[in-house]
């Protein structure tokens, strides 16, 4: 018995669209809380623990505060671009989530429910492309603020993001050599069939991808463009209230996106670990979605852990790191993997 066409054609897509907007937003809320708690715990203190159970309502308090702040637009600012840029940055981060698969599909009453909004044979390319639209938001924000500090901050952010896109792309290519497809679902399935995750097969690719991912999201130790203790305060200096909240949310959403990509490309997406060990077969009973969530949480924790530990790179060294080290390394890696793949 197939499901009612109204459900299949209307209700489920609507629910999926709601999910693709809510999922990153919920993750952002969790991320804000986790960042403050984990950084505090690393520093020997407790962090927010009064607002709600163990401080879980703290992001709500922050959002509430930002909601009521006065929305200031500088007099000389370009109003259209000024208002457009936070929207661009947020939408680009959220849109890419349409193509991220969250778990294996399962059958309910003869209907196969897929845990992704859309599956495309070029899913990976679309995700990378959509998330790059955010660069425009940054440029518009810096330019429209009509002030030298945000503009300089915006230019630096853009140079940083563009430079680190290259090793990102090249390491992804090494994964594609093995998976022979840029469909994200197919990549995960390939890791299932190969019974080894690409992160272990291609460790150099994983590390370079991870470092580039941190630089892409403007996080420590690559956060000079927006660091508080430096001179240039970054492209979002002139923003206040909800527009600033948009930039803030977009940054965290982008982090969740990069973590999702790392997990899907290199760590098996929704697959449970140790598929070859018969004694651990019970792990397969836990739904794939939960495995995916657990892995993402680990990488988000890694983001915060790295932020609390490492000092900040100066901007010129940041760019030097990309061009002198990561790009040659990823190029070499690409050639080596290509040769080994087709020779062995």
């Amino acid at each position: 018995m197939t499901a009612h066409p109204l459900v299949v054609d209307f209700l489920i897509p609507v629910l999926k669209i709601a999910a693709v907007i809510l999922y990153p937003l919920v993750m952002v809320i969790v991320m804000i809380w986790m960042e403050r708690r984990v950084v505090a715990l690393i520093q020997g203190r407790l962090g927010p623990n009064r607002v709600g159970f163990e401080g879980i309502l703290q992001p709500a308090a922050d959002a509430f505060k930002l909601f009521f702040k006065e929305d200031i637009i500088p007099r000389q600012a370009d109003r259209f671009l000024f208002n457009l840029s936070p929207v661009l940055v947020l939408v680009s981060s959220l849109l890419a989530f349409c193509f991220i698969p969250l778990g294996e599909s399962f059958r309910i009453k003869g209907y196969t429910l897929t845990l992704w909004v859309a599956e495309s044979p070029v899913g990976l390319l679309l995700v990378l492309g959509l998330s790059s639209i955010g660069v425009f938001g940054i440029i518009f924000g810096g330019w429209a603020s009509n002030s030298k500090y945000p503009l300089m901050g915006a230019l630096r952010s853009v140079v940083q993001i563009l430079s680190y896109e290259i090793p990102l792309g090249m390491t992804v290519l090494t994964v594609i050599f093995f998976s022979r497809s840029i469909d994200l679902v197919a990549i995960v399935n390939h890791q299932k069939d190969a019974r080894i995750w690409f992160g272990f097969l291609l460790p150099v690719s994983f590390v370079v991808f991870w470092i580039s991912g941190i630089a892409e999201t403007n996080r420590a130790p690559f956060d000079l463009p927006e660091a508080e203790s430096e001179l240039v305060a970054g492209y979002h200096t002139e923003y206040s209230g909800m527009k600033f909240a948009f930039f803030y949310i977009a940054e965290y959403a982008h982090m969740v996106l990069v973590s999702s990509l790392v997990v899907i490309l290199f760590f098996g997406g929704w697959l449970p670990p140790f598929p070859n060990v018969a004694a651990l077969a019970f792990l397969h009973r836990i739904p794939g979605f939960l495995w995916y969530l657990a892995k993402i949480m680990f990488f988000l924790y890694l983001y915060v852990w790295i932020r609390a530990t490492l000092p900040r790179y100066r901007f010129d060294a940041l760019i030097k790191l990309a061009w002198k080290w990561l790009i040659p390394l990823s190029a070499l890696n690409l050639v080596a993997v290509a040769v080994l793949r087709y020779v062995l």
């Binding site: 984990v38 715990l41 690393i42 520093q43 020997g44 203190r45 407790l46 852990w305 609390a308 530990t309």
Partner: peptide, 24 residues
């Protein structure tokens, strides 16, 4: 192999699991 960075990360991880010094 990023030895110095890993060393720093392990130090902060140890602090993560240590008792906290603040009181409520």
């Amino acid at each position: 192999f990023l030895v110095d960075i890993l060393r720093g990360l392990l130090i902060t991880l140890r602090y993560y699991f240590s008792p906290k010094v603040t009181i409520q």
